[in-house]
Amino acid sequence: MIIERQAIAGTLESSDLQIIIDKNDGHGIEIDLQSSVEKQFGRRIREVLMETLKNLKVEDAKVVVVDKGALDCTIIARTMAAVHRAAGITSNYNWEGFEEWNV
């Protein structure tokens, strides 16, 4: 998917995360992660973000994430919502194959 505009998903509530995704034309994926549990889970959070973006075929994006202890399933859902919004897809989300993702 091609990121066309900035989009946001999620909240700053406990057990959630807020993700902002924006264009990053030709510069790959850049992740800015802010998390109170970054030392324990930062590597896993980045891994889930990258795998989800890869599965959605996103190649260039600036991603800012403020994590408040979100589980993997929440990270995936919020990332998918932000990417679809940023790509201009506001309905008919493609959830097919989600169960088979290796995240």
Score class of each variant (00 low, 15 high):
64 V>L: 10
87 A>Y: 00
87 A>W: 02
73 C>A: 09
67 D>R: 02
67 D>H: 05
62 K>H: 10
59 E>V: 03
62 K>F: 12
76 I>M: 08
71 L>M: 14
78 R>M: 10
69 G>E: 07
66 V>I: 12
58 V>T: 05
87 A>T: 05
56 L>G: 03
56 L>R: 04
54 K>Q: 15
54 K>P: 03
56 L>P: 04
82 A>K: 03
79 T>Y: 07
74 T>V: 14
53 L>Q: 01
80 M>L: 10
55 N>G: 14
69 G>C: 11
87 A>F: 07
70 A>S: 13
77 A>F: 00
73 C>D: 09
65 V>H: 04
56 L>V: 09
85 R>Y: 14
85 R>D: 13
76 I>D: 02
61 A>L: 08
53 L>I: 03
61 A>C: 08
65 V>M: 06
57 K>E: 15
74 T>F: 06
77 A>P: 05
83 V>T: 02
78 R>K: 13
53 L>G: 00
84 H>T: 08
74 T>C: 09
86 A>H: 02
86 A>P: 03
55 N>Q: 12
62 K>S: 13
85 R>C: 09
62 K>W: 09
75 I>S: 09
83 V>M: 02
88 G>P: 01
77 A>W: 03
73 C>S: 14
56 L>C: 03
53 L>S: 02
63 V>P: 08
55 N>F: 05
70 A>V: 10
86 A>C: 01
72 D>G: 04
59 E>Y: 04
83 V>G: 04
56 L>N: 04
78 R>G: 07
60 D>G: 02
88 G>H: 00
55 N>E: 13
78 R>E: 07
75 I>V: 15
86 A>K: 01
78 R>Y: 04
76 I>E: 14
71 L>N: 13
76 I>W: 03
67 D>V: 07
66 V>W: 05
81 A>D: 15
81 A>Y: 02
81 A>W: 01
70 A>T: 10
77 A>G: 12
79 T>D: 11
71 L>V: 14
56 L>D: 05
65 V>N: 03
66 V>Q: 13
65 V>W: 01
86 A>N: 07
